[in-house]
Design a protein around this nucleic acid. Structure first.
Lengths: 344, 344
DNA sequence: TTGTACGCGTTATCAT
DNA sequence: ATGATAACGCGTACAA
């Protein structure tokens, strides 16, 4: 550990610590050359800890996500990282879908970071008071808590995305449309369910209870949910799956059961994936720019920080987009009808 | 900003700051109850910055990776995070494959973190001096630099994995076996190429120059490389692709060109992927436990830290495994020969 | 057990 | 432009 301090440099050059400090801050001092050399020779590095104590800021911004191995969150993090700038860094907290870890980590963030960008696990954290008295600037990304209005946020138009997805299936002639949703306690879980229901309602299709499964955004959850749907007396002809991991799980289930997509069942997912084109068949999805969400969140945070925390909360919304590939088709019934017509 | 300090708490309770400090450190003091209440009432949070300055440690460990959106590195990070323990956190640096960013970030780490776990961009950093003068404990993960022996590391048996992959193709009857490799300046790039060549040599197959393409571990790189291979006069009948992203790219290329796998060409990748089973056909790969690599690296770092940095470097190696799925088959020639035999 | 007082490495203020 | 010095918030040796 290089334990050489500013005092050592000062002594070595023969000036006071104040002069060295000023040199480091960019002021013009007399012995610039000698100081420069001394710093290199002694291999002096300013202590970040001391600077933090003095300045009250750390130059570190935390980003809290439920699961970094989810490509969606990885992209958010990457976006945030890309926008963090030269003199700041990011502290990553992976809560692993554990509320306990989330709370614990949050409390550890004090004094370590200047602000936190977070995708909270659920909307009902510890009630409105928690984040209000949290004391650290917060920007929510992808998800908010109950009192999310009080803080800046960068969300997706979840309801719109879900609506588009469901509408797309309806327009293909599907009527028995199921949804594998996320936890209704989360922002995307709730809003996407809303969008699904509103689309059905708009087309006068009654939403059947057994066609909506509240799952958990995990691959295993998607697998289980799809299995349940297949066991229905009247299985759906199309399924809207509310996130990428569950979509993978659902596809696995279909593959294991030998159900062919889109011949026997149509699938549309939420969130694009690197490999969505490569699966069989290529996956039709609702896509959005996760990287952009991350960078916007960071921009908001930095703006807030540089304004001395005096900015009112801003709410940004990233758009969604239907990416048509091959996992959706006309329902079987329609196909049969057509065939029949042709046969006669 | 919670600007309430230990002094405020002390005043509020009517004791000295030392007593509060002792209470916080777990010593038994007289007014525990009153102190507890005061802390909650005032919403006091110890300043991490002040503690850092006092103790000389930050409780933060940096993890430096080239690309967090690569599922492999995401898993490494997750593994490291899972092993970090209660009282430490991780600082993520995503170098985005930029050497400049890597260096810059590294220099910023000083004093902010207690140690750094890193997957360096290339083996030829600035030579041994760079990391030695860095002054921070280092554990290499997945990749090392030239003087990597001096620091602990957690690698994969790259050569073995590549050897197995190539051998597997040979055992299926392939002779025209190409490899899309990573940069030879990186540990995995070099070792995997070694394994490929050794396997060919062992079977007496001469390695043709045009069958080895040094690419860059990116999806685009894999795409381009595969295109080049397809344009060869005598295209290979099988390709070993040295990482996951390039495999995705290669598959895209094959799909765009209408080349069917495994009928026309066999593909084996390095690193498993969530969706490897779902692509068409399911992907055969060399797999390893990336999460384990991450957690082992963290374990090594913590061990080093808790021994006061007095431990000699340890080198750990995570095993590889062949996961047979459906992307490899007998070469076409063999198929034809067989057909001929049957026909006659 | 408790309180006093000093030091951790920097930066900012105030004279000079 | 420079130097001495007081903070920043906390931990701890020392004395009580």
């Amino acid at each position: 550990m290089s334990t050489v301090t500013i005092t050592d440099v000062a002594k070595h050059v023969g000036v006071s610590v104040a002069t060295i400090s000023r040199y480091l801050s960019g002021f013009t001092v007399r012995n610039e050359e000698k100081i420069r050399e001394a710093i290199i020779e002694l291999n002096y590095r300013p202590s970040a800890a001391a600077r933090n104590l003095k300045s009250g800021r750390t130059g570190i911004i935390a980003i809290v996500v439920p699961d970094i191995t989810n490509p969606f969150f990885a992209s958010i993090v990457e976006g945030a990282e890309s926008a963090v700038g030269e003199d700041r860094m990011i502290l990553l907290v992976n809560t692993g879908d554990s509320r306990e870890r989330e709370e614990k980590a949050l409390s550890q963030l004090f004094g370590r970071v200047d602000g936190v960008i977070m995708a909270p696990l659920t909307e009902d954290e510890q009630g409105p008071s928690f984040f209000s008295q949290f004391g650290l600037p917060i920007v929510f990304v992808d998800r908010v808590t109950k009192d999310g209005e009080k803080f800046s946020s960068v969300l997706t138009d979840n309801a719109k995305g879900a609506h588009i997805a469901t509408d797309y299936l309806i327009s293909q002639g599907h009527r028995k449309i199921a949804m594998i949703g996320g936890p209704l306690s989360t922002t995307p879980g709730k809003r996407r369910a809303d969008g699904y229901r509103s689309a059905l309602a708009k087309s006068g299709i009654s939403s059947q209870v057994e066609y909506f499964i509240e799952s958990d955004f995990s691959e295993a959850g998607g697998y289980a949910a799809m299995c349940r749907l297949l066991e229905e007396e009247a299985p759906p002809t199309a399924v809207f799956v509310a996130n990428n991991l569950m979509t993978i799980g659902a596809l696995h289930a279909l593959r294991d059961r030998g159900v062919s997509v889109p011949q026997e069942i149509s699938i549309i997912g939420f969130d694009d994936l690197e490999f969505a084109e490569l699966v069989n068949p290529p996956l039709t999805v609702i896509a959005r720019d996760a990287r952009l969400q991350g960078s916007q969140a960071m921009d908001l945070m930095i703006k807030h920080l540089e304004n001395g925390g005096a900015t009112p909360p801003e709410h940004s919304m990233v758009d969604v987009q239907l990416v048509e590939r091959g996992s959706c088709a006309l329902p079987r019934e329609s196909q049969k009808i057509r065939s029949n017509k042709i046969d006669h």
